[in-house]
Simulated assay, not measured.
Amino acid sequence: MPVSRSGRTLLDAAALALAFGIVALAAPAYAGESPGFGDGGTTEQSGGGDSTGIYAAAKIQYSGSVAKNGSTGNVSSSDVNWTPPSCWYAPYLGAKDFKKKMTEDFEKAKNTPGMNGTAGAATAEEQRHYEDGFGWTDTPGYKDYNVDKDGEGMFWAGVENPNEPDALKRMACSDLPFWVENGEAPPAQYEEAIKPEILAALAYQHMELPDTEVTLAPKAVTKVNLATWAWLDKATFNEVQATAAINVPGFNIQATTTAKPVALKIEPGTEDAQTYPASGECTINADGSIGEPWAKGKSDETPPCGLKYLRSSGDGTYKLRATITWDIAWTGTGGTGGDLPNGTFGTTQDITVQEIQAVNR
């Protein structure tokens, strides 16, 4: 008698440690990160690290301003409740390659000590699922691994996000590999199936924002009670893009995440300071710059963006932190798109503050 998908998931969980770990059954559920190139190049996130290359179809290709070697970028979300996807389902193998892989894994399972009881029964049920058409309420089985449909679709499987620190979240996409016809969307019950929205969030996670140093006048050494002007020129303050894409036969999607600078927040590194404006948050100007460059004759003016230290830094320095807020949005395949939480990235500069020496005659 067919059981529900939830029942099948519970049954399958008993065999995960053995079937997925020891014999590598449906290995994409435990994906790794393959080496990439540097900034402005590409990096790939794949469904496994098998030397035969049979996982190549599940790779996500990243390009644009992304972190090296597939690592997390330097942008932080301003929304503490927002997180990138922990796992997803992606194209895995064609029917014939899938049959070869699964047949080998089932054979290994039969010869693995301890394959009895619940784990052994679950593995045998999985074999019936792909070979004899054994299915569940919302998941039909397959006859001979769908080899008569080879080239007409692919089996999809779970992929872990290697940058997710929570192991349980990474393993949430633990359903058995399922078939998707070329040009068709995955079944609705697989909410974590890869789509432009997920690619956009992953591009966000891998995005590398530029190390922008705020221009100061005076630059690194200032005086007590002397206004310091701060600004960012438009030329060094441009938008940044990162793209994530999957391209396999019958399935090609991509999403580009764009970050545009919108504000600068100045934190003097001490309470003995005054910021301009009082909030320390300088908004972007109409021409795309922030603040206003200092020029001769402005020494007695209040800067639109800047600060004033009220006490000397003594023999040390103050750590001035300049944090840029980036407005982040995305566009993707099929006219999709939307907004993502603002991102922030800050840099620190050492500031020496000296006392003004006065001489009385």
Rank of each mutant, 00 (worst) to 15 (best):
A167P: 00
E160C: 04
P261A: 10
S76Y: 08
K195Y: 05
G250N: 09
W326K: 06
S174M: 07
A203I: 01
W294Y: 15
G36C: 07
N182A: 10
A201S: 15
G338T: 00
A17S: 12
Q45K: 09
G117Q: 05
R128T: 12
V221Q: 11
W326Y: 14
S174Q: 09
E125G: 08
G133M: 01
W330Y: 12
H206A: 15
L216E: 04
R311S: 15
P210D: 14
I324S: 08
N360K: 10
N69M: 14
P162I: 04
D132K: 09
G94M: 10
A220V: 02
A58I: 03
F178V: 06
F237N: 15
L168I: 05
E191I: 06
L176R: 08
W294P: 00
G32T: 10
A27I: 05
T139S: 13
Y190K: 05
E125L: 15
M102F: 14
K298F: 12
S174K: 03
T283G: 06
G94I: 06
A109F: 12
F20G: 15
Q354I: 08
D287C: 06
P304N: 14
A26Y: 04
P91L: 06
N252I: 02
I328Y: 00
D97Q: 11
A24Q: 09
A255P: 01
E191V: 11
E271T: 14
F178P: 03
T352K: 14
S78Y: 03
T275D: 12
P28E: 15
Y309E: 10
N74T: 02
A227M: 06
E44G: 01
P84L: 01
T123S: 13
A329I: 02
A329R: 04
K265V: 13
L232R: 00
Q189D: 13
P186W: 07
T283W: 00
G32Q: 07
S313N: 09
T139A: 14
N238E: 15
L93P: 00
D138V: 01
M171V: 00
R321P: 01
D12F: 03
G316L: 07
E292R: 04
R361S: 14
T72Y: 00
R170F: 01
G36A: 12
G32I: 10
R321K: 15
W326L: 09
A217L: 00
P268F: 02
G183W: 04
P249Q: 11
A244S: 11
S86E: 07
K195T: 10
V221I: 13
A244T: 03
D339L: 07
L232W: 02
T325M: 05
A193L: 03
A14Q: 12
T215S: 13
A242D: 09
D39F: 06
E33D: 04
C305F: 02
L310Q: 12
G332I: 09
K308C: 13
G141S: 12
G280M: 09
Y276N: 12
D327C: 01
D287I: 06
Q241F: 01
T42R: 08
D175W: 06
K110C: 05
P84I: 02
N74H: 02
P165H: 11
P261E: 03
A242I: 08
P249V: 06
S76W: 04
Y309K: 01
C87Y: 06
N81V: 02
G7P: 00
W82F: 15
P2H: 05
M1K: 07
T270L: 12
H206W: 03
A220T: 10
P218C: 13
C282V: 13
N252W: 01
E164C: 08
K110A: 15
A122P: 03
V248I: 07
